[in-house]
Nucleic acid binder design. Structure first.
Lengths: 221, 221
DNA sequence: CTGTCATTCAATGATTTTATTGAATGATGT
DNA sequence: ACATCATTCAATAAAATCATTGAATGACAG
Protein backbone atom coordinates (compact mmCIF):
# COMPACT_ATOMS: atom_id res chain seq x y z
CA UNK A 1 0.00 0.00 0.00
CA UNK A 2 1.77 3.09 -1.23
CA UNK A 3 0.93 6.49 0.18
CA UNK A 4 0.22 8.75 -2.75
CA UNK A 5 0.44 12.47 -2.36
CA UNK A 6 -1.92 14.75 -4.25
CA UNK A 7 0.61 15.48 -6.94
CA UNK A 8 1.05 11.79 -7.69
CA UNK A 9 -2.70 11.34 -7.76
CA UNK A 10 -2.98 14.15 -10.29
CA UNK A 11 -0.23 12.66 -12.41
CA UNK A 12 -2.03 9.33 -12.41
CA UNK A 13 -5.01 11.12 -13.91
CA UNK A 14 -2.88 12.80 -16.56
CA UNK A 15 -1.38 9.39 -17.33
CA UNK A 16 -4.87 7.97 -17.90
CA UNK A 17 -5.36 10.48 -20.70
CA UNK A 18 -1.98 9.76 -22.27
CA UNK A 19 -2.51 6.03 -21.96
CA UNK A 20 -5.83 6.33 -23.76
CA UNK A 21 -3.98 7.99 -26.64
CA UNK A 22 -1.34 5.27 -26.52
CA UNK A 23 -2.90 2.79 -28.90
CA UNK A 24 -2.88 3.12 -32.70
CA UNK A 25 -6.48 2.06 -33.16
CA UNK A 26 -7.72 4.46 -30.53
CA UNK A 27 -5.92 7.24 -32.39
CA UNK A 28 -7.67 6.12 -35.54
CA UNK A 29 -11.01 6.23 -33.71
CA UNK A 30 -10.26 9.80 -32.71
CA UNK A 31 -9.47 10.68 -36.30
CA UNK A 32 -12.81 9.31 -37.44
CA UNK A 33 -14.75 10.94 -34.63
CA UNK A 34 -13.11 14.22 -35.57
CA UNK A 35 -15.11 14.06 -38.81
CA UNK A 36 -18.33 13.89 -36.82
CA UNK A 37 -20.31 11.79 -34.31
CA UNK A 38 -20.58 8.10 -35.03
CA UNK A 39 -22.21 4.95 -33.70
CA UNK A 40 -20.14 2.03 -32.48
CA UNK A 41 -21.13 -0.06 -35.45
CA UNK A 42 -20.25 2.63 -37.98
CA UNK A 43 -16.80 3.03 -36.44
CA UNK A 44 -16.25 -0.72 -36.33
CA UNK A 45 -17.10 -0.85 -40.02
CA UNK A 46 -14.70 1.97 -40.89
CA UNK A 47 -11.83 0.42 -38.96
CA UNK A 48 -12.64 -3.18 -39.90
CA UNK A 49 -12.62 -4.35 -36.30
CA UNK A 50 -15.01 -6.41 -34.16
CA UNK A 51 -17.74 -4.33 -32.56
CA UNK A 52 -16.99 -5.44 -29.01
CA UNK A 53 -13.37 -4.43 -29.45
CA UNK A 54 -14.30 -0.99 -30.71
CA UNK A 55 -16.80 -0.59 -27.89
CA UNK A 56 -14.07 -1.25 -25.35
CA UNK A 57 -11.68 1.22 -26.96
CA UNK A 58 -14.42 3.84 -27.01
CA UNK A 59 -15.02 3.34 -23.33
CA UNK A 60 -11.33 3.75 -22.60
CA UNK A 61 -11.41 7.04 -24.48
CA UNK A 62 -14.55 8.11 -22.67
CA UNK A 63 -13.02 7.37 -19.28
CA UNK A 64 -10.10 9.57 -20.29
CA UNK A 65 -12.48 12.46 -20.90
CA UNK A 66 -11.93 12.51 -24.64
CA UNK A 67 -15.36 11.33 -25.81
CA UNK A 68 -18.94 11.65 -24.76
CA UNK A 69 -21.62 9.09 -25.51
CA UNK A 70 -25.27 9.79 -26.20
CA UNK A 71 -27.92 7.16 -26.61
CA UNK A 72 -30.18 7.61 -29.61
CA UNK A 73 -32.71 4.82 -29.85
CA UNK A 74 -30.86 1.59 -30.37
CA UNK A 75 -27.66 3.39 -31.22
CA UNK A 76 -25.05 5.02 -29.04
CA UNK A 77 -23.43 7.98 -30.69
CA UNK A 78 -19.94 8.89 -29.61
CA UNK A 79 -18.41 12.28 -30.24
CA UNK A 80 -15.30 14.22 -29.26
CA UNK A 81 -16.25 16.33 -26.26
CA UNK A 82 -14.23 19.29 -27.57
CA UNK A 83 -11.07 20.20 -29.45
CA UNK A 84 -8.74 19.47 -26.55
CA UNK A 85 -8.44 15.79 -27.44
CA UNK A 86 -7.60 16.61 -31.03
CA UNK A 87 -5.07 19.15 -29.77
CA UNK A 88 -3.44 16.51 -27.59
CA UNK A 89 -3.29 14.15 -30.55
CA UNK A 90 -1.70 16.90 -32.62
CA UNK A 91 0.98 17.66 -30.06
CA UNK A 92 1.83 13.98 -29.70
CA UNK A 93 2.08 13.80 -33.47
CA UNK A 94 4.40 16.79 -33.50
CA UNK A 95 6.82 15.06 -31.14
CA UNK A 96 6.83 11.95 -33.32
CA UNK A 97 7.27 13.90 -36.56
CA UNK A 98 10.15 15.88 -35.20
CA UNK A 99 12.11 13.21 -33.39
CA UNK A 100 11.29 9.67 -34.45
CA UNK A 101 13.50 8.36 -37.23
CA UNK A 102 10.93 5.71 -38.07
CA UNK A 103 8.33 8.37 -38.86
CA UNK A 104 10.78 9.99 -41.23
CA UNK A 105 11.37 6.65 -42.89
CA UNK A 106 7.66 5.98 -43.39
CA UNK A 107 7.03 9.48 -44.72
CA UNK A 108 9.93 9.23 -47.17
CA UNK A 109 9.05 5.72 -48.25
CA UNK A 110 5.36 6.12 -48.81
CA UNK A 111 4.02 9.65 -48.58
CA UNK A 112 6.72 11.58 -50.37
CA UNK A 113 6.58 9.06 -53.23
CA UNK A 114 3.02 10.26 -53.82
CA UNK A 115 3.40 13.95 -53.12
CA UNK A 116 6.74 15.58 -52.47
CA UNK A 117 5.42 19.12 -52.91
CA UNK A 118 4.73 21.60 -50.16
CA UNK A 119 1.06 21.33 -49.18
CA UNK A 120 -1.28 24.30 -49.37
CA UNK A 121 -2.01 26.05 -46.09
CA UNK A 122 -5.55 26.85 -44.97
CA UNK A 123 -5.03 30.58 -45.44
CA UNK A 124 -3.53 30.12 -48.87
CA UNK A 125 -6.41 27.91 -49.91
CA UNK A 126 -9.00 30.36 -48.63
CA UNK A 127 -7.40 33.17 -50.63
CA UNK A 128 -7.03 31.17 -53.82
CA UNK A 129 -10.61 29.91 -53.58
CA UNK A 130 -11.90 33.44 -53.19
CA UNK A 131 -9.98 34.45 -56.31
CA UNK A 132 -11.38 31.49 -58.25
CA UNK A 133 -7.97 29.96 -58.89
CA UNK A 134 -8.54 26.44 -57.59
CA UNK A 135 -10.89 23.47 -57.69
CA UNK A 136 -11.17 21.88 -54.24
CA UNK A 137 -11.98 18.19 -53.97
CA UNK A 138 -12.92 16.35 -50.79
CA UNK A 139 -11.82 12.74 -51.28
CA UNK A 140 -13.53 11.31 -48.18
CA UNK A 141 -16.54 8.98 -48.35
CA UNK A 142 -19.87 10.78 -48.89
CA UNK A 143 -21.10 10.24 -45.32
CA UNK A 144 -18.14 12.16 -43.94
CA UNK A 145 -18.49 14.86 -46.59
CA UNK A 146 -22.13 15.26 -45.57
CA UNK A 147 -21.18 15.99 -41.95
CA UNK A 148 -19.20 19.05 -42.99
CA UNK A 149 -16.86 20.14 -45.77
CA UNK A 150 -15.00 23.12 -47.14
CA UNK A 151 -17.60 25.41 -48.76
CA UNK A 152 -17.49 24.96 -52.50
CA UNK A 153 -15.56 21.70 -52.39
CA UNK A 154 -16.67 18.84 -54.64
CA UNK A 155 -16.99 15.39 -53.08
CA UNK A 156 -14.93 12.98 -55.16
CA UNK A 157 -14.28 9.86 -53.07
CA UNK A 158 -10.90 8.43 -53.95
CA UNK A 159 -12.38 5.34 -55.61
CA UNK A 160 -14.49 7.48 -57.96
CA UNK A 161 -11.65 9.75 -59.00
CA UNK A 162 -10.57 7.88 -62.18
CA UNK A 163 -14.13 7.93 -63.51
CA UNK A 164 -14.70 11.56 -62.67
CA UNK A 165 -11.55 13.19 -63.95
CA UNK A 166 -13.52 14.91 -66.68
CA UNK A 167 -15.33 17.02 -64.07
CA UNK A 168 -12.07 18.66 -63.14
CA UNK A 169 -10.80 21.29 -65.52
CA UNK A 170 -7.10 21.43 -66.24
CA UNK A 171 -7.16 25.20 -66.28
CA UNK A 172 -7.34 25.43 -62.49
CA UNK A 173 -5.11 23.85 -59.90
CA UNK A 174 -6.83 21.03 -58.00
CA UNK A 175 -6.45 20.94 -54.22
CA UNK A 176 -7.35 17.69 -52.43
CA UNK A 177 -7.99 17.14 -48.73
CA UNK A 178 -9.38 14.42 -46.50
CA UNK A 179 -9.34 13.53 -42.80
CA UNK A 180 -6.11 14.98 -41.54
CA UNK A 181 -2.44 15.63 -42.16
CA UNK A 182 -1.48 12.00 -42.84
CA UNK A 183 -4.67 10.81 -44.46
CA UNK A 184 -3.50 8.61 -47.32
CA UNK A 185 -6.43 9.36 -49.57
CA UNK A 186 -5.34 12.91 -50.40
CA UNK A 187 -1.82 11.70 -51.15
CA UNK A 188 -3.17 9.04 -53.51
CA UNK A 189 -5.50 11.56 -55.13
CA UNK A 190 -2.70 14.03 -55.80
CA UNK A 191 -0.50 11.28 -57.26
CA UNK A 192 -3.32 10.10 -59.54
CA UNK A 193 -4.13 13.64 -60.70
CA UNK A 194 -0.51 14.46 -61.46
CA UNK A 195 -0.12 11.29 -63.50
CA UNK A 196 -3.01 12.52 -65.64
CA UNK A 197 -1.42 15.88 -66.21
CA UNK A 198 -3.29 17.91 -63.61
CA UNK A 199 -1.66 20.53 -61.43
CA UNK A 200 -2.58 19.15 -58.02
CA UNK A 201 -1.62 19.77 -54.42
CA UNK A 202 -2.77 18.71 -50.97
CA UNK A 203 -4.21 20.81 -48.19
CA UNK A 204 -1.74 20.64 -45.30
CA UNK A 205 -4.29 19.02 -43.02
CA UNK A 206 -7.91 17.92 -43.12
CA UNK A 207 -11.47 18.83 -42.28
CA UNK A 208 -11.23 18.68 -38.48
CA UNK A 209 -8.34 21.12 -38.46
CA UNK A 210 -10.15 23.40 -40.90
CA UNK A 211 -13.13 23.43 -38.57
CA UNK A 212 -11.01 23.85 -35.43
CA UNK A 213 -9.31 26.87 -37.02
CA UNK A 214 -12.70 28.55 -37.21
CA UNK A 215 -13.04 28.46 -41.01
CA UNK A 216 -16.51 28.29 -42.56
CA UNK A 217 -17.95 24.79 -42.90
CA UNK A 218 -20.74 23.71 -45.21
CA UNK A 219 -23.09 20.94 -44.08
CA UNK A 220 -25.33 18.86 -46.32
CA UNK A 221 -29.00 19.84 -46.22
CA UNK B 1 1.01 -11.70 -39.45
CA UNK B 2 -1.03 -8.59 -40.03
CA UNK B 3 -0.43 -6.43 -43.08
CA UNK B 4 0.02 -2.90 -41.86
CA UNK B 5 -0.51 -0.02 -44.21
CA UNK B 6 1.60 3.12 -43.92
CA UNK B 7 -1.06 4.97 -41.98
CA UNK B 8 -1.21 2.27 -39.36
CA UNK B 9 2.56 2.26 -39.15
CA UNK B 10 2.53 5.99 -38.56
CA UNK B 11 -0.14 5.67 -35.89
CA UNK B 12 1.94 3.05 -34.14
CA UNK B 13 4.73 5.61 -33.92
CA UNK B 14 2.39 8.27 -32.55
CA UNK B 15 1.17 5.73 -30.02
CA UNK B 16 4.75 5.15 -28.86
CA UNK B 17 4.95 8.81 -27.89
CA UNK B 18 1.60 8.79 -26.11
CA UNK B 19 2.45 5.56 -24.34
CA UNK B 20 5.69 7.07 -23.08
CA UNK B 21 3.62 9.88 -21.53
CA UNK B 22 1.23 7.32 -20.07
CA UNK B 23 2.94 6.68 -16.77
CA UNK B 24 2.81 9.02 -13.76
CA UNK B 25 6.47 8.69 -12.90
CA UNK B 26 7.58 9.36 -16.43
CA UNK B 27 5.50 12.53 -16.35
CA UNK B 28 7.26 13.46 -13.14
CA UNK B 29 10.61 12.84 -14.83
CA UNK B 30 9.60 15.21 -17.59
CA UNK B 31 8.66 17.83 -15.04
CA UNK B 32 12.07 17.58 -13.41
CA UNK B 33 13.93 17.58 -16.71
CA UNK B 34 12.01 20.69 -17.68
CA UNK B 35 13.94 22.48 -14.91
CA UNK B 36 17.22 21.54 -16.58
CA UNK B 37 19.40 18.58 -17.60
CA UNK B 38 19.98 15.92 -14.98
CA UNK B 39 21.89 12.71 -14.43
CA UNK B 40 20.10 9.43 -13.82
CA UNK B 41 21.19 9.37 -10.20
CA UNK B 42 20.04 12.93 -9.53
CA UNK B 43 16.60 12.14 -10.94
CA UNK B 44 16.37 8.90 -8.97
CA UNK B 45 17.14 10.89 -5.82
CA UNK B 46 14.49 13.52 -6.58
CA UNK B 47 11.81 10.92 -7.27
CA UNK B 48 12.89 8.51 -4.53
CA UNK B 49 13.04 5.56 -6.93
CA UNK B 50 15.64 2.86 -7.65
CA UNK B 51 18.23 3.94 -10.20
CA UNK B 52 17.63 1.02 -12.56
CA UNK B 53 13.95 1.81 -12.63
CA UNK B 54 14.56 5.45 -13.48
CA UNK B 55 17.07 4.44 -16.13
CA UNK B 56 14.47 2.30 -17.84
CA UNK B 57 11.85 5.04 -17.76
CA UNK B 58 14.36 7.48 -19.22
CA UNK B 59 15.10 5.12 -22.06
CA UNK B 60 11.40 4.75 -22.79
CA UNK B 61 11.16 8.54 -23.00
CA UNK B 62 14.25 8.69 -25.19
CA UNK B 63 12.88 6.10 -27.58
CA UNK B 64 9.75 8.25 -27.87
CA UNK B 65 11.88 11.18 -28.99
CA UNK B 66 11.23 13.21 -25.87
CA UNK B 67 14.71 13.15 -24.33
CA UNK B 68 18.29 13.15 -25.49
CA UNK B 69 21.16 11.64 -23.53
CA UNK B 70 24.71 12.90 -23.43
CA UNK B 71 27.57 11.13 -21.71
CA UNK B 72 29.72 13.33 -19.51
CA UNK B 73 32.47 11.31 -17.85
CA UNK B 74 30.88 8.76 -15.62
CA UNK B 75 27.51 10.47 -15.80
CA UNK B 76 24.83 10.44 -18.44
CA UNK B 77 22.93 13.68 -18.65
CA UNK B 78 19.40 13.57 -19.95
CA UNK B 79 17.57 16.61 -21.23
CA UNK B 80 14.34 17.45 -23.02
CA UNK B 81 15.17 17.66 -26.71
CA UNK B 82 12.89 20.66 -27.17
CA UNK B 83 9.61 22.19 -26.01
CA UNK B 84 7.42 19.80 -27.99
CA UNK B 85 7.42 17.18 -25.22
CA UNK B 86 6.42 19.75 -22.64
CA UNK B 87 3.72 20.98 -25.02
CA UNK B 88 2.37 17.44 -25.36
CA UNK B 89 2.35 17.07 -21.59
CA UNK B 90 0.49 20.37 -21.31
CA UNK B 91 -2.18 19.38 -23.82
CA UNK B 92 -2.72 16.04 -22.09
CA UNK B 93 -3.04 17.93 -18.82
CA UNK B 94 -5.60 20.23 -20.38
CA UNK B 95 -7.82 17.30 -21.34
CA UNK B 96 -7.62 15.90 -17.82
CA UNK B 97 -8.29 19.26 -16.17
CA UNK B 98 -11.31 19.91 -18.32
CA UNK B 99 -12.98 16.54 -18.33
CA UNK B 100 -11.89 14.23 -15.52
CA UNK B 101 -14.05 14.49 -12.42
CA UNK B 102 -11.30 12.94 -10.34
CA UNK B 103 -8.95 15.80 -11.18
CA UNK B 104 -11.58 18.23 -10.03
CA UNK B 105 -11.92 16.30 -6.80
CA UNK B 106 -8.18 16.34 -6.09
CA UNK B 107 -7.88 20.03 -6.90
CA UNK B 108 -10.80 20.91 -4.66
CA UNK B 109 -9.67 18.66 -1.86
CA UNK B 110 -6.04 19.60 -1.70
CA UNK B 111 -4.99 22.52 -3.84
CA UNK B 112 -7.89 24.88 -3.31
CA UNK B 113 -7.61 24.33 0.43
CA UNK B 114 -4.17 25.96 0.20
CA UNK B 115 -4.84 28.62 -2.38
CA UNK B 116 -8.28 29.35 -3.72
CA UNK B 117 -7.27 32.65 -5.31
CA UNK B 118 -6.74 33.28 -8.98
CA UNK B 119 -3.05 32.84 -9.76
CA UNK B 120 -0.96 35.62 -11.26
CA UNK B 121 -0.31 35.35 -14.99
CA UNK B 122 3.17 35.72 -16.43
CA UNK B 123 2.33 39.03 -18.07
CA UNK B 124 0.78 40.39 -14.90
CA UNK B 125 3.83 39.34 -12.89
CA UNK B 126 6.24 40.92 -15.37
CA UNK B 127 4.36 44.20 -15.17
CA UNK B 128 4.07 44.25 -11.40
CA UNK B 129 7.76 43.37 -10.99
CA UNK B 130 8.76 46.21 -13.28
CA UNK B 131 6.66 48.57 -11.18
CA UNK B 132 8.27 47.27 -7.97
CA UNK B 133 4.98 46.07 -6.52
CA UNK B 134 5.88 42.45 -5.70
CA UNK B 135 8.47 40.24 -4.07
CA UNK B 136 8.97 37.07 -6.11
CA UNK B 137 10.10 33.91 -4.36
CA UNK B 138 11.27 30.71 -6.05
CA UNK B 139 10.46 27.88 -3.66
CA UNK B 140 12.35 25.15 -5.53
CA UNK B 141 15.54 23.57 -4.20
CA UNK B 142 18.70 25.63 -4.81
CA UNK B 143 20.05 23.35 -7.56
CA UNK B 144 16.97 23.95 -9.67
CA UNK B 145 17.03 27.66 -8.91
CA UNK B 146 20.66 27.76 -10.09
CA UNK B 147 19.73 26.33 -13.50
CA UNK B 148 17.49 29.27 -14.23
CA UNK B 149 15.00 31.49 -12.44
CA UNK B 150 12.84 34.56 -12.85
CA UNK B 151 15.20 37.58 -12.81
CA UNK B 152 15.04 39.25 -9.41
CA UNK B 153 13.41 36.28 -7.68
CA UNK B 154 14.69 35.20 -4.27
CA UNK B 155 15.34 31.51 -3.72
CA UNK B 156 13.45 30.44 -0.60
CA UNK B 157 13.12 26.66 -0.63
CA UNK B 158 9.84 25.65 0.95
CA UNK B 159 11.54 24.10 3.99
CA UNK B 160 13.39 27.33 4.73
CA UNK B 161 10.35 29.54 4.45
CA UNK B 162 9.35 29.62 8.17
CA UNK B 163 12.87 30.68 9.16
CA UNK B 164 13.15 33.33 6.49
CA UNK B 165 9.83 35.11 6.75
CA UNK B 166 11.60 38.19 8.05
CA UNK B 167 13.29 38.69 4.69
CA UNK B 168 9.92 39.27 3.08
CA UNK B 169 8.38 42.66 3.67
CA UNK B 170 4.66 42.84 4.32
CA UNK B 171 4.41 46.03 2.29
CA UNK B 172 4.66 44.18 -1.01
CA UNK B 173 2.64 41.25 -2.27
CA UNK B 174 4.63 38.02 -2.38
CA UNK B 175 4.35 35.86 -5.51
CA UNK B 176 5.57 32.26 -5.27
CA UNK B 177 6.34 29.85 -8.08
CA UNK B 178 8.00 26.47 -8.51
CA UNK B 179 8.13 23.72 -11.14
CA UNK B 180 4.82 23.97 -12.91
CA UNK B 181 1.10 24.56 -12.65
CA UNK B 182 0.43 21.83 -10.07
CA UNK B 183 3.66 21.97 -8.14
CA UNK B 184 2.61 21.58 -4.53
CA UNK B 185 5.41 23.70 -3.12
CA UNK B 186 4.02 26.99 -4.31
CA UNK B 187 0.59 26.10 -2.94
CA UNK B 188 2.11 25.27 0.44
CA UNK B 189 4.18 28.46 0.38
CA UNK B 190 1.16 30.64 -0.33
CA UNK B 191 -0.81 28.94 2.44
CA UNK B 192 2.03 29.44 4.93
CA UNK B 193 2.51 33.09 3.96
CA UNK B 194 -1.20 33.88 4.24
CA UNK B 195 -1.36 32.32 7.69
CA UNK B 196 1.36 34.74 8.75
CA UNK B 197 -0.51 37.73 7.45
CA UNK B 198 1.23 38.18 4.12
CA UNK B 199 -0.55 39.03 0.91
CA UNK B 200 0.56 36.11 -1.23
CA UNK B 201 -0.35 34.59 -4.58
CA UNK B 202 0.95 31.95 -6.91
CA UNK B 203 2.26 32.31 -10.42
CA UNK B 204 -0.09 30.37 -12.71
CA UNK B 205 2.63 28.00 -13.81
CA UNK B 206 6.32 27.45 -13.21
CA UNK B 207 9.80 28.05 -14.52
CA UNK B 208 9.68 25.82 -17.61
CA UNK B 209 6.59 27.61 -18.88
CA UNK B 210 8.15 31.00 -18.12
CA UNK B 211 11.18 30.01 -20.18
CA UNK B 212 9.10 28.48 -22.98
CA UNK B 213 7.11 31.72 -23.22
CA UNK B 214 10.33 33.53 -24.07
CA UNK B 215 10.58 35.52 -20.83
CA UNK B 216 14.03 36.54 -19.54
CA UNK B 217 15.73 33.91 -17.40
CA UNK B 218 18.55 34.51 -14.94
CA UNK B 219 21.16 31.78 -14.46
CA UNK B 220 23.52 31.46 -11.49
CA UNK B 221 27.09 32.57 -12.22
C1' DC C 1 46.27 -2.97 -14.17
C1' DT C 2 42.84 -2.62 -10.44
C1' DG C 3 39.17 -0.71 -7.96
C1' DT C 4 35.30 2.35 -7.90
C1' DC C 5 31.36 4.52 -9.51
C1' DA C 6 27.31 5.68 -12.74
C1' DT C 7 24.64 3.55 -15.81
C1' DT C 8 22.74 -0.06 -18.58
C1' DC C 9 21.50 -4.71 -19.51
C1' DA C 10 19.19 -9.15 -18.82
C1' DA C 11 16.23 -12.13 -16.43
C1' DT C 12 12.32 -12.82 -13.28
C1' DG C 13 7.81 -12.70 -11.72
C1' DA C 14 3.73 -9.59 -10.94
C1' DT C 15 0.50 -6.72 -12.92
C1' DT C 16 -1.96 -4.60 -16.66
C1' DT C 17 -3.60 -4.34 -21.20
C1' DT C 18 -5.52 -6.47 -25.17
C1' DA C 19 -8.45 -9.32 -28.35
C1' DT C 20 -11.88 -12.73 -28.54
C1' DT C 21 -15.98 -15.08 -27.39
C1' DG C 22 -20.51 -15.51 -25.91
C1' DA C 23 -24.00 -13.95 -22.78
C1' DA C 24 -26.58 -9.89 -20.79
C1' DT C 25 -28.84 -5.37 -21.35
C1' DG C 26 -31.89 -1.91 -23.30
C1' DA C 27 -34.54 -0.08 -26.85
C1' DT C 28 -37.53 -0.84 -30.88
C1' DG C 29 -41.19 -2.89 -33.69
C1' DT C 30 -44.65 -6.51 -34.43
C1' DA D 1 -45.23 -10.59 -24.84
C1' DC D 2 -41.82 -11.68 -28.31
C1' DA D 3 -38.23 -11.18 -31.65
C1' DT D 4 -34.65 -8.22 -33.29
C1' DC D 5 -30.91 -5.27 -33.20
C1' DA D 6 -27.02 -2.24 -31.19
C1' DT D 7 -24.26 -2.15 -27.50
C1' DT D 8 -22.14 -3.52 -23.26
C1' DC D 9 -20.59 -6.79 -20.00
C1' DA D 10 -17.95 -10.77 -18.27
C1' DA D 11 -14.67 -14.29 -18.72
C1' DT D 12 -10.62 -15.98 -20.78
C1' DA D 13 -6.13 -16.40 -22.76
C1' DA D 14 -2.35 -13.99 -25.02
C1' DA D 15 0.67 -10.18 -24.97
C1' DA D 16 2.81 -6.10 -23.13
C1' DT D 17 4.40 -3.39 -19.36
C1' DC D 18 6.38 -2.90 -14.87
C1' DA D 19 9.51 -3.22 -10.73
C1' DT D 20 13.19 -5.69 -8.87
C1' DT D 21 17.48 -8.03 -8.71
C1' DG D 22 22.09 -8.84 -9.81
C1' DA D 23 25.48 -8.95 -13.40
C1' DA D 24 27.76 -6.37 -17.32
C1' DT D 25 29.64 -2.09 -19.35
C1' DG D 26 32.31 2.06 -19.70
C1' DA D 27 34.78 5.76 -17.69
C1' DC D 28 37.74 7.55 -14.36
C1' DA D 29 41.36 7.55 -10.33
C1' DG D 30 45.15 5.63 -8.18
Amino acid sequence: MSIRNPKQKLYEQFAIVAKALGHPQRLELIEHLAQGPRSVEALAMKLGLPIANVSQHLQTLRRAGLLSAERNGKFVNYRLVDDSGLAAFASVRTVAERHLAEVDRIVRGYFEARDDMEPVTRQELATRMRDGLVTVIDVRPPDEFALGHVPGAINVPLGDLPARLAELGKDKEVVAYCRGPWCVMSFEAVAALRSHGYAARRLADGMPEWRAAGMAVEVAA
